[in-house]
């Protein structure tokens, strides 16, 4: 039914199964160093958590990956391709989607339109065909509506699909952002504190969604990204409990430096991590 070509699924011949490689990245604002010599590898088929105290540089790292900040040293590779100097919109088209810590939704649009706006990169209409509307613009619009409705359905947002985002409560907005990121059908997903400010029940919902997105839902959906899942996810999060449950590997940042990396149980007992979180004795 859905005859839409997407950048999903990826070319499978990844070198060493590495999807994203952050190599020796440093970033500073004026004299303040936000990241120094950070190395990070995101493999195919893993959820990688990036944790660290406030101001550790977690969001700065995501901003570097999505092209919003340009690191002054180091390189970032996506599937072997250097993306360090690319614009954010070019990086999005390669297949990297993200959510924002402080919610970056289009507040004047409805839930549906917000998700639909993310289909931008898969649509080909321009001013002239849009102005005429009848014909190619209309049929394209209809095709992409199918995808968007599936994503809204998957994230259980249907009751609010025609609500203006500005009028929705915080927890729902976070979920709409997730929906919008999914609509890009990315190959890697960067989640910047998707559960911040939520109660336990909402957190569990989001955790469930993240796992479902990672696993893929099989044939019950037609949209590629829901069918096959997103096999590489970076999760920036404060809630240690949830991070330990979700992530296969954890990277810990403190003052812009990587201080530890490993499996959850290793991180739990790491001296340096405990010191960074609890302070020096």
């Amino acid at each position: 039914m859905l005859f839409i070509t997407t950048i999903y699924p990826s070319g499978m011949n990844l070198e060493g199964g590495i999807r994203l490689k952050v190599h020796d990245v440093s970033l500073s604002f004026g004299g303040v160093s936000a990241l120094s010599d950070v190395d990070l590898i995101l493999k195919d088929r893993e959820i990688l958590a990036v944790i660290g105290p406030n101001g550790a540089g977690k969001t700065a790292l995501l901003n570097c990956i999505s092209g919003f900040y340009k690191p002054w040293k180091g390189e970032i590779y996506f599937e072997g391709k250097k993306i360090t100097k690319m614009r954010p919109d070019q990086i999005a088209k390669l297949g990297i989607a993200r959510t924002f810590q402080n919610i970056g939704l289009y507040t004047g649009l409805t839930v549906f339109e917000n998700v639909m706006a993310a289909r931008h990169i898969y649509m080909s209409q321009n001013l002239i065909t849009d102005a005429i509307f009848v014909g190619p613009a209309k049929s394209e619009e209809l095709r992409h509506r199918g995808v968007v409705e599936e994503i809204i359905d998957f994230l259980e947002l249907s009751p609010w699909r025609k609500k203006v985002v500005g009028s929705l409560p915080y927890g729902l907005r976070k979920r709409v952002e997730l929906a919008r990121a999914l609509a890009l059908e990315p190959r890697i997903l960067l989640l910047d504190e998707p559960m911040a400010g939520m109660n336990l029940e909402e957190k569990e919902d989001i955790a469930r969604f993240i796992l479902e997105i990672f696993d893929g839902q099989g044939e019950s959906y037609e949209t590629h990204v829901l069918k096959d899942g997103i096999k590489s996810i970076i999760l920036v999060e404060h809630d240690m409990g949830i991070v330990m449950d979700l992530a296969e590997r954890i990277v810990v940042l403190d003052f812009g430096r990587k201080i530890a990396e490993g499996k959850p149980e290793e991180i739990r007992n790491d001296e340096k991590v405990i010191r960074a979180y609890l302070g020096e004795d």
């Binding site: 993200r98 289009y106 649009l109 339109e113 706006a117 931008h120 001013l127 509307f133």
Partner: peptide, 23 residues
Amino acid sequence: GRVGRAFIAIRDHEIAAEVMGIN
């Protein structure tokens, strides 16, 4: 249409619009 949504995206959240693939 597509162009209009891109316009609104720029109006409402320029950074997000760019990260979502809008030039």
